[in-house]
Each structure stands twice: as structure tokens, then as C-alpha cells.
């Protein structure tokens, strides 16, 4: 049984996420797969190492599923994030969103990836040509409604 939300050290299988969704009444499924990119801020990236506070990260993914369900009641979401060392081109995150119509599926998937970057305690350690650096993005704050509204605006653009 594939869980709807997971933090895992093993390679991601987007099709398994799709199969995990209940597709009763569903007319559209969209998947988003985030890959390790070979460049960042002008640096040549060699590989990434992802670290997570696993127990809280799973909780964060569950929060996103709950938020999306409140916004798009007919949408079903599955989100898996990988941790550990990943090479260029490997999938670090996979999201599957199912809905009766495509608009909500696309919107919910976009919302999920934006919220992951805002609130889920996962960190990228970038190893690039000439050094390494921890990437630091957003302060994980569930009370920050401005951030949440921003994710919603991006999702619905």
C-alpha cells in the first residue's frame, strides 16, 4: 500500500502515486516531478543531498493535503519527497493530483509544490563546482497567511 504522503530515501515512482489515488469520479490526473538541476544561481551543480526532519515533514505534507482539500474539495493529492544524495536528473519530489476536471488538478499540484517550498522541513545541500552550500529558502511558518495566499495566487494564475 503506497501512502499518500511520504518522505523516503528510495527513488520516487510517480506512477505509484497515481495508482494510490482513488479515481472514482475522476476525469483528470496531473503529475509534477521535480528534478535535480545541473545549475543554480550561475553555479555548476554536481549533486544534491536532501535532509529532512522526517516526522514533521510528513506532517507538513499532510497539512498541504488538508489545505488543498479545503480549497478544492474534489481533488485528491499524493506527495512523496525523497531525501539523501541525488544525482543530476533524479527526481527529488513527485506530486499526483486527481480531480473531476483538469483545472483543479493542475491548480492543486502547483499549490502543493509552492507550499512544500514554504513550510515542509526539508533542506537541500548543494554540492557545486568549487564548493558546497546549504540552500535556505522560506521560514516554515504555518501562521504566515501571506505566504499561503501567495501559493494560492500562483496556483490559480
Amino acid at each position: 500500500m503506497v501512502p499518500l504522503t511520504a518522505i523516503t530515501p528510495t527513488p520516487l515512482d510517480p506512477q505509484a502515486l497515481v495508482r494510490a489515488l482513488d479515481t472514482t469520479g475522476i476525469g483528470a490526473v496531473t503529475t509534477f516531478i521535480g528534478l535535480v538541476r545541473d545549475h543554480n544561481l550561475g553555479r555548476r551543480v554536481l549533486h544534491l543531498e536532501y535532509e529532512a526532519y522526517e516526522a514533521l515533514a510528513v506532517r507538513g505534507l499532510d497539512v498541504i493535503v488538508t489545505e488543498a482539500a479545503a480549497q478544492w474539495p474534489t481533488v485528491r493529492l499524493a506527495i512523496h519527497h525523497r531525501i539523501g544524495r541525488m544525482e543530476i536528473g533524479e527526481a527529488s519530489v513527485a506530486i499526483a493530483a486527481a480531480a473531476p476536471h483538469r483545472g483543479d488538478a493542475f491548480a492543486a499540484a502547483r499549490y502543493a509544490i509552492e507550499r512544500i517550498k514554504q513550510i515542509v522541513p526539508i533542506w537541500k545541500h548543494e554540492y557545486f563546482e568549487g564548493g558546497d552550500v546549504w540552500i535556505e529558502g522560506a521560514t516554515a511558518d504555518l501562521d504566515n497567511t501571506e505566504a499561503r495566499d501567495q501559493a494560492l495566487r500562483i496556483a490559480c494564475a
Partner: peptide, 26 residues
């Protein structure tokens, strides 16, 4: 204890208190 909290919250004996730098998942 693996739940989002705030700096003003009191901790209890045996609690797990985590500090999170800005996140960068995705």
C-alpha cells in the same frame, strides 16, 4: 515533539524541541 510550534510556547520535561533553518525542499 514533531509538531509546528512557536517560540513563546513553554516546553515540558522530556520534550523534543527542534529548530528549523529556512526550508528548501522541492
Amino acid at each position: 515533539n514533531a509538531d509546528y510550534s512557536r517560540f513563546t510556547v513553554a516546553v515540558a520535561d522530556g520534550d523534543e524541541v527542534a529548530f528549523l533553518p529556512p526550508v528548501s525542499g522541492g
